[in-house]
């Protein structure tokens, strides 16, 4: 039973000393401290440690008054300095201005992404020196020899080339 009481106290002691236990738990720990010697010893040990921390930690890093005064002097100079840059920064960093800035950045990114595509589109529209396409195909149906019938007459799309009327160009069909 004492073992259980001690374990219970040990678990709850820090919160008991810190004053953040529920009313029922606080009363229970208090009763165990009164009844059980080990619990009482644990309480005293814990309490002493907390007290020592409370007394020793504030002594850590005690400031040098002379140094604090020097810091104040430089702080005072900073405060007296005209806040032109900071005002500009504040205006620039205001919520509306930020939205505007983000808008500008997004626009710049969009242009940067679209620019290569636009350039590519225009370059595809530019005249390219393609091979001439046949304007019309006609087959001469006059009786000829088998080899002659396989001739396909191509007429180019350039009428009156060199002032001699439509230029006809005979191209022999592939030999099937």
């Amino acid at each position: 039973m004492i073992g259980f009481k001690y374990r219970y106290c040990k678990v709850h002691m820090a919160r008991y000393i810190g004053g953040d236990l529920s009313e029922a738990a606080r009363r229970r720990v208090g009763r165990y401290i009164d009844e059980c010697e080990d619990c009482h010893r644990e309480y005293r040990r814990h309490r002493e440690f907390a007290l020592k921390l409370e007394r020793s930690l504030p002594t850590l890093g005690r400031p040098n008054q002379q140094r604090l005064d020097q810091l104040w002097s430089s702080l005072e100079r900073e405060l007296q300095r005209p806040a032109r840059n900071s005002m500009w920064l504040r205006d620039f960093a205001s919520p509306h201005s930020l939205q505007f800035s983000y808008g500008l950045v997004m626009l710049a990114i969009s242009i940067a992404l679209l620019l290569p595509m636009l350039i590519g589109f225009h370059s595809s529209l530019a005249p390219v020196d393609l091979p001439r396409l046949p304007h019309s195909i006609s087959v001469d149906r006059t009786p000829r020899t088998r080899a002659e019938n396989r001739q396909i007459i191509f007429a180019t799309a350039e009428p009156n080339c060199c002032g001699r009327g439509p230029m006809l160009q005979n191209t022999p069909a592939p030999d099937l």
Partner: peptide, 22 residues
């Protein structure tokens, strides 16, 4: 009032320094 700033600094500087140092 610059004295107001100085008073606030005197009041809190030491404690704030200890906090930062710790």
């Amino acid at each position: 009032d610059q004295v107001g700033y100085a008073e606030l600094y005197d009041r809190y500087a030491a404690a704030l320094y200890r906090l930062c140092y710790s």
